[in-house]
Amino acid sequence: MQYLVEKRQLVIPGELLAEGDYKSGKNTYQEENRVYSSLIGLANHIGKNVFVVAIKTGYMPIVGDLVIGKVIDMKLSGWIIDINAPYSAILFTSDAFDRSFNARKDEMSDFLKVGDLIFAKVNAFDRTRDPILTIRDQGLGKVNRGRVIKITSTKIPRLIGRKGSMVNMVKRETGCQITIGQNGIVLVSGKNPELEALAILAIRTIEKDAHTLGLTDKISKLLKREERKEIKQ
């Protein structure tokens, strides 16, 4: 019985992590009594549970996630939504209309057209069926204004920061509304294009320097400097 790698050691797929009475946790797999990594990431263990924190993975929907998606098709039963995942999601017409949907009277494209964006919650998903979205909750629904940027979904926690500290700071400094989808799509809408551009610059910097020291201070300085420039102009 042995745990073979150091805590937070960089591991690659197929690397032996532990041998003996250990449990295979996230991003690992087990063969007989040996636990191996299945991804590039940082190995760790809590008690008997061995797991790997991935450095880069694609987005996989989880029930309850808030996501930003794009309408890519319309079917009789609902809209097909691209949510930046291996599976495209569906938003049912019955979910979008309060009353029961009548295909003769109601026009689906009055509500959402192909190309529209929505902010929605993953209502149901398992790998045998495509994810089902819902917009029946506060703040969810069609996105009417703002700019969309795509970032790596593993960097979302860094963008949010501890208890939302990072994103709240960007919001406060730029006065922009920032909506973050767990699938790596971020929506920025502000009073004017200049402020939106500033917020986007900040988010891009966070994505690029996600692993560097003193990021919060750096972003704070960046925002203040850029704002001063604007006032001068």
Binding site: I12, G14, Y36, S38, L39, I40, A54, K56, T57, G58
Partner: peptide, 11 residues
């Protein structure tokens, strides 16, 4: 494949 973040048993 490893760079893509796809779970692998080995290389």
């Amino acid at each position: 494949l490893a760079d893509a973040g796809i779970p692998l048993k080995d290389l």
